[in-house]
Design a protein around this nucleic acid. Structure first.
Lengths: 204, 204
DNA sequence: ATAAAACAGTAATCGTCATTACGTATTTGG
DNA sequence: CCAAATACGTAATGACGATTACTGTTTTAT
């Protein structure tokens, strides 16, 4: 139960970090502020995470794990490739424009060392990307899409689905799209993808 | 020549600001650092720009003006819509992934007030967007593209051309694409756009 | 139950800026 | 050439924040 306690405490601390990040931005998020908000001690933060960058690295890593699990569950829950693809799009938009993802992207943008950005990138290429590819491949197996290069198909789908949503979120230009907007955009991406990759002649 | 001197001095100061921004990131860029680098006085910075946010607002505004002029010149220089479109894509990729644009986007990401982001957004919607639309409309007039909604065509083209390049640049995941990469990507966007909007039946 | 370990709460270092103040040199206008 | 304005160089001022230290409590393990 020692371990259990610690996990709960870490969850609270990281929750506090996200809350501050979303309220005051990266520069306004201080170690003391996080500790105060989580009713934790300064020393505990440093004992567990080493230093400020360490805390944010942990945040990124955990977030990536959670996203992968969430997306994976959604894929596993559905048998039909077309349905999966239809439900997958809005979910992907949701998680990539979620305040948490935006906060982490902002932190990465502010990190001169580029370490956070690299972590996010690895999470994308290593965890999220393959999941999307898996969905696309299932759709191909089902005969809904035709393509040779799965990598190119993935890039195309992401461009159509996400586009510049993330950068516009990160610079505060737009709010997170609501369920309806997510659905509309995902449907458009799927329609266009089918136009491009739906025929029997593989275009990519 | 008093005015002339001041313009030169401002150019030097802003140059120094960009240099520091690109070297040390937004948090590492201090007013004193800029002044030192530009061999200017602290007071001059404050006299001319008011405060730190004011300096960055100026940077964003001037950059937007420069981009608009550059893009506009490229459009005006070419008569044939297809050629214009082919040359426009790589240029747009270049300016939007340029270190300066990336630095300003990072500054906007770090600005909790969102004012910088709004400025960038206005520049995009007000200056850059219409220029792209103008190119697309010229291509339509020429019979190369068919669409009803110019706004939707613009969004589609930007998604295909830029996609998530900017966010990946901003979090330090990729370097600025070189001329060859820019050309390849722009060609892909144009090919796909023609596939989607090239037929006689307008899809958007 | 009790000593050791872990944690909360608070305060103390140590630097780093944004912003302001001053004294000097240079430029401008007459 | 002389004053007024401008800009430089340097040095405060004042906050704030990462990191460390110290002091009681609580929890864990025996």
């Amino acid at each position: 139960m020692r371990e259990e306690r610690r996990l709960i405490r870490q969850e609270q601390i990281e929750q506090a970090a996200y809350a501050l990040l979303e309220e005051k931005g990266f520069a306004g998020t201080t170690m003391q502020g996080i500790a105060l908000r989580a009713r934790a001690s300064n020393q505990t933060l440093y004992a567990w995470y080493g230093d400020k960058p360490g805390l944010f690295r942990t945040l990124v890593a955990r977030n990536a794990d959670q996203l992968r699990d969430l997306l994976q569950a959604r894929i596993a829950a559905n048998g039909d490739p077309v349905e999966t693809l239809e439900q997958f799009g809005p979910l992907l938009i949701e998680v990539l424009t979620h305040p948490r993802a935006v906060a982490l992207n902002r932190a990465a943008a502010a990190d001169p060392s580029g370490a956070l950005g690299r972590l996010i990138g690895e999470a994308g290429r290593g965890s999220i990307g393959p999941l999307i590819q898996q969905v696309l491949l299932a759709a191909r197996d089902n005969g809904d899409l035709h393509f040779c290069d799965p990598q190119a198909a993935l890039v195309l789908y992401v461009d159509l689905l996400i586009g510049d949503l993330q950068i516009r979120r990160v610079i505060g230009l737009i709010a997170a799209p609501d369920a309806s907007a997510r659905h509309t955009r995902a449907a458009r991406a799927l329609t266009l993808l089918r136009q491009l990759l739906g025929g029997s002649a593989p275009a990519a």
